[in-house]
């Protein structure tokens, strides 16, 4: 069999995913709550809500799609270039990609069509809070 290095096999239908709770699920059976729970019990990782604000063809890398996100409470602007078949997990909706047809061909994973306004699950490092400064009496 020819390996397909560009297609990470964790998105293949039937791939076994371990949640932070230790539970094993197939990638196609994952629910929003699985990501939320996993982030809660895993130290150091935090779930962010990342809203898709723009989708366009990548200028730098032909064949890829530039996805523009507003990330987290800060609404930080982040752009990533991905192949059109790359699936994202949309809150309350599930797997979605820019090309559900290609995702189905390459991974066998059923996807919705990713659109502007969709809110995707993303992760970031939990903010390491500085020790509270003691309030010195003046």
């Amino acid at each position: 069999p020819v390996p397909a290095p560009c297609n990470p096999s964790h998105f293949m239908k039937g791939a076994i995913i371990q949640l932070a709770t230790g539970e094993l699920k197939r990638v196609e059976d994952l629910q929003t709550q699985d990501f939320v729970r996993s982030a809660e019990v895993s130290g150091g990782l935090k779930i962010d809500s990342s809203m898709v604000v723009d989708i366009r063809a990548s200028q730098q890398r032909p064949g890829l799609v530039s996805l523009h996100f507003n990330v987290g409470e800060q609404q930080s602007k982040v752009t990533i270039d991905v192949p059109p078949e790359h699936p994202f997990f949309v809150f309350g909706q599930g797997w979605s990609s820019c090309s559900p047809e290609r995702t189905a061909q390459l991974y066998g994973l059923a996807c919705h069509h990713l659109q502007v306004g969709d809110v995707c699950v993303s992760i970031t490092l939990q903010q390491q809070l500085q020790p509270q400064q003691q309030k010195q009496p003046q």
């Binding site: 995913i17 996993s38 994202f88």
Partner: peptide, 19 residues
């Protein structure tokens, strides 16, 4: 059978610091 960690499925979107 390979087992993948849940966090490999979702993008790591670190806000870029602009200062």
């Amino acid at each position: 059978v390979p087992v993948f960690p849940w966090h490999s499925l979702v993008p790591f979107l670190a806000p870029t610091q602009s200062d």
